[in-house]
């Protein structure tokens, strides 16, 4: 078994007849690493995540060429639920909790793929990580605060003990102090469980604090790759990504 958990090779993706949203993107994620994927709004981050998780098609996109291998297995042909079954979980952008179901029911959906005997154990471990969820386990998820919903989305993804967790735009719409708190907690959980994480962030300053290495997407291509330390000290990266990226952020 190789040390690479996710391997993306020359992946190109388009939506309808429009131009490519991803143009020959390649990178890989080593096992147990915490990797950041940065980029401005519209740079292709969400498209890349959808390609990895299998939610591309229902959003009208299609893979033009390239490959994605998870744990040594090509996954582009697999439906989303099968990828989750392989251990590829995600906490989607905008949190997307089941707003009319209770907190515990939300978590049980994530635990549904576990054998029945391990569901309770999964549930109690999530409650250990996020005590707030335990306090509110009977509450309707739609009535939780933004931070609590984010915890719930993470808990729902983590409950099945995935090998790779994709965290999509965690900071969106949350107070900075809350973002730092959740990222800190998430980092501890990932390291204690040995979960590999791919953290997608628009907010580079936040992300650089918690990840080992980063890849920057710029208009559909990888514009920069390096360790978090390198990136933090790199003028080139700051110019290339923070400069240009924000000007064309709305593209």
């Amino acid at each position: 078994m190789s040390d690479t958990i996710l391997d993306i090779r020359e992946l190109s993706v388009g939506y309808g007849r429009k131009g490519l949203a991803l143009d020959s993107v390649s990178f890989s994620i080593p096992r147990h690493a915490i990797v950041g994927l940065l980029g401005a709004n519209g740079a292709g981050k969400t498209t890349l995540i959808r390609s990895i998780t299998g939610l591309l098609k229902i959003n009208g996109g299609h893979v033009v060429s390239g490959s994605v291998a998870f744990d040594g297995q090509p996954v582009l042909g697999l439906p989303a639920h099968k990828r989750v079954g392989l251990g590829l979980a995600q906490s989607p952008e905008g949190r997307m909790v089941f707003s009319r179901m209770t907190v515990e029911e939300n978590l049980m959906v994530g635990a549904a793929m576990l054998p029945r005997s391990r569901q309770d154990e999964g549930l109690s471990s999530i409650y250990r990580f996020f005590p707030r969820l335990k306090e509110r386990h009977r509450q309707i998820a739609g009535l939780l605060s933004g931070g609590e919903q984010q915890m719930l989305a993470l808990g729902r993804a983590l409950i099945s003990r995935p090998k790779l967790l994709l965290v999509d735009e965690l900071s969106l719409g949350l107070a900075p102090i809350l973002v730092n708190e959740i990222y800190g907690e998430l980092g501890r959980i990932a390291r204690s469980l040995g979960t590999t994480m791919l953290v997608v962030e628009q907010n580079a300053h936040v992300a650089l604090k918690y990840v080992d290495t980063i890849h920057v997407l710029d208009r559909g291509s990888i514009g920069y790759s390096g360790t978090a330390e390198e990136a933090a000290g790199s003028e080139a990266m700051k110019r290339a990504y923070l400069g240009e990226g924000q000007k064309e952020g709305a593209a």
Binding site: T53, G54, L55, I58, P79, A80, H81, V84, G85, A89, Q90, P92, M96, V97, F98, S99, R100, M101, E105, N106, M108, V109, G110, A112, M113, R156, A157, S160
Partner: peptide, 22 residues
């Protein structure tokens, strides 16, 4: 039944959570 309610509640979230939505 739980998974069906999840699917009905939010399609894409159910897919993301590993539910065989189809």
């Amino acid at each position: 039944g739980l998974l069906m309610r999840a699917t009905a509640d939010r399609h894409e979230a159910a897919m993301a959570a590993g539910v065989n939505v189809n």
